[in-house]
Simulated assay, not measured.
Amino acid sequence: MSNPDLYGVLGRFEHPDALLEAIAELRKAGHSRLEAFSPYPVEGLSRALGERSRWLTVAALVGALLTALATYGMIWYSAVIDYPYVVGGKPLHSWPPFLLLAFVLAILAAVLVALVGMLMGNRLPRLYHPAFNVAAFSRASDDGFFILIRLERNPEDVERLRRRLDDLHALDIQEVPA
């Protein structure tokens, strides 16, 4: 019987293609709590893990529109209601300059919402992860392609997961303490 204080099982693969094949096989087997680590971006990895990021563009659009409306309203209120001052014979509600500032701040808001959303979606900054406790994990930033299977049920699954990763031709298989 294994230690009940385990986070999961970590397997190292030689190539990104082997990592993608292992993820596909594990997902077919019903494993949904998978994490992958590689030294460089691997095309198709997020799709293989089943991750979708459709909410980020909608959030950026909503943030931009709300900021544009708030900016336009603030400028309109200050120029028409709060301090109505006629400059050069222009009407109080001169919308072209109002739109310029609203547009610029809308773009700024969209970029900031996208940045914060990207950081939240990627769970960054990640100052600690249980995989950092495994000595071989230092190769994840050099030449190692790792898959971490988080324990879903009971600690007895560890041996079954080790055998499964061995069947998928993992080079190194280690238990990750919590």
Rank of each mutant, 00 (worst) to 15 (best):
1 M>R: 05
7 Y>V: 00
7 Y>C: 10
9 V>N: 06
12 R>G: 10
13 F>H: 04
16 P>I: 02
20 L>K: 05
22 A>Q: 08
25 E>K: 10
26 L>Y: 06
27 R>V: 07
28 K>C: 12
35 E>W: 00
36 A>H: 02
38 S>Q: 09
39 P>Q: 08
44 G>I: 05
46 S>N: 13
46 S>A: 12
54 R>K: 03
59 A>Q: 03
60 A>N: 04
62 V>A: 02
65 L>N: 00
71 T>F: 02
79 A>M: 05
86 V>L: 14
86 V>I: 15
87 V>R: 08
97 P>D: 10
97 P>H: 14
99 L>V: 07
102 A>G: 02
105 L>R: 01
106 A>Q: 02
106 A>N: 01
107 I>Q: 02
109 A>R: 01
112 L>P: 00
113 V>D: 03
114 A>I: 03
114 A>N: 09
114 A>R: 00
116 V>P: 05
117 G>N: 05
121 G>K: 03
121 G>S: 04
121 G>R: 02
122 N>L: 08
123 R>P: 07
125 P>H: 09
127 L>A: 04
130 P>L: 12
135 A>Q: 04
138 S>T: 14
142 D>H: 11
144 G>N: 05
145 F>K: 01
146 F>Q: 07
147 I>A: 08
149 I>S: 06
151 L>I: 15
155 P>S: 14
159 E>H: 05
161 L>H: 11
163 R>M: 15
166 D>R: 13
171 L>D: 15
174 Q>L: 11
177 P>K: 00
